[in-house]
Design a protein around this nucleic acid. Structure first.
Lengths: 131, 131, 131, 131
DNA sequence: GTGGTCTAGACCACT
DNA sequence: GTGGTCTAGACCACC
């Protein structure tokens, strides 16, 4: 469920935040569902509880979850602004990466192929025009 | 020309690398053109020369520039030998990012728009659709 | 353990990189084993920590070690994904060097001897001749 | 005749030294043959005369050439110790590179192939066993 | 405690 | 004057 890469240069807590965001956005974790407790998760992932704490705090700040003292942490109701904000960021990143790919000489065919591959592996989620 | 955010969590040298890459990709800086000298740029940005050094070194490793002791730093030609492997990496990143975008529900129209925008800002470098 | 020549024309950090690579290749330092901390090693060698840093960073780029903030630096597993391209580069270098050796009149016997020596000091890692 | 790589990280004068050594060892430049004058070569390669000077001085120190004031620079008589010394260095480098290749998992077959390729492109210069 | 970034200032090698 | 290396010492982020 959580594929943490201990060797990555990206801090563990950031990996956790990203992964949990993804689970929330894709609604694997549904609104008001309880997240695993800090200690449980720490034990499961053999990771320092402080690290989990930090991830949860970050998620709370960003509005993805809310915590109730003595009870635990829960998924916040979906918020459109979250999604659109993220989409904007992703589109921006996409532009940067596309620029780089084009500079390096990616061909239109290759580009199409990449898109098709992704499209197949996801299986829709993108409205397609004619196929 | 260089908008550095000294307070950002992103290290200054990384910001520099990104910005310079952008200038090279968009061909504001052209092949074999000389970059500002380490010291000059350092003075201009009121930043330590070592920091500029680090950025230039990183760009050299990534193949975007080459430096010659006693002469200066210059933009590498776009079609280098190591390009193939770099393209492979970028294509991989592209797939990840596209997956994410599709998960978040990017529409085909938006995607096309992004591609067109990039295409316009670079001005070819990708074999195109209808000429 | 580390014989650094402070007077050599070769930068200290490069000497460090070479030496550490050697230790990793000969498996004196084994996969996931922790390297001495930047500060510790700096003190031991009476060298500035930044210099050690630079060496470690270089080794990380080359894929021989990985570093985790707050934890330390560790030996990367030998068979990494990026291995193929590295092998290609090394094979190329090997060809150049072999050409030079042959020009200088190295004999087949000497060549075989070199290969055997290396083979012995590593102890396999190459599928071998007769077993 | 001189393929200098202006973009290489290796200083130009070193490239010159290496190239000239090679020409002398392979006897393209024969004993007591006159080398091109500093100015001529500088003009030919569109390089600063000082750089040529430095290369010639280095070659003189290493005993590959001798200079006569007012006449020019000439190839020194072949010296066995030069060759053997260089061979030793090359063998050492070969060992390092082979170690690395093996660590990266080069197979015996690949190694043999590399050797054969070089052998073919040189066309002997190595005493061969059976073919 | 660990790695990572940055500064200020020095020195060297190369052109 | 250029890039490149090194030091001494500071501060931050992470675990």
């Amino acid at each position: 469920m959580f594929e943490l890469d201990i060797r990555s240069r990206k801090p563990i807590y950031e990996q956790l935040v990203e992964r949990l965001k993804e689970l929330i956005i894709t609604e694997v974790l549904k609104t008001d569902e309880q997240l695993p407790s800090v200690r449980t998760l720490a034990q499961q992932l053999t990771i320092n509880p402080n690290t989990i704490q930090k991830a949860y705090r970050e998620l709370e700040i960003q509005g993805y979850i809310y915590s109730i003292k003595g009870k635990g942490s829960f998924v916040s109701p979906a918020n459109d602004s979250q999604n659109t904000e993220k989409l904007l960021k992703v589109k921006n990143d996409l532009m940067k990466l596309l620029s780089e790919a084009m500079y390096l000489g990616i061909t239109a065919d290759e580009l199409i192929e990449v898109i098709k591959e992704v499209h197949a592996s996801i299986g829709g989620g993108i409205e397609n025009d004619q196929n």
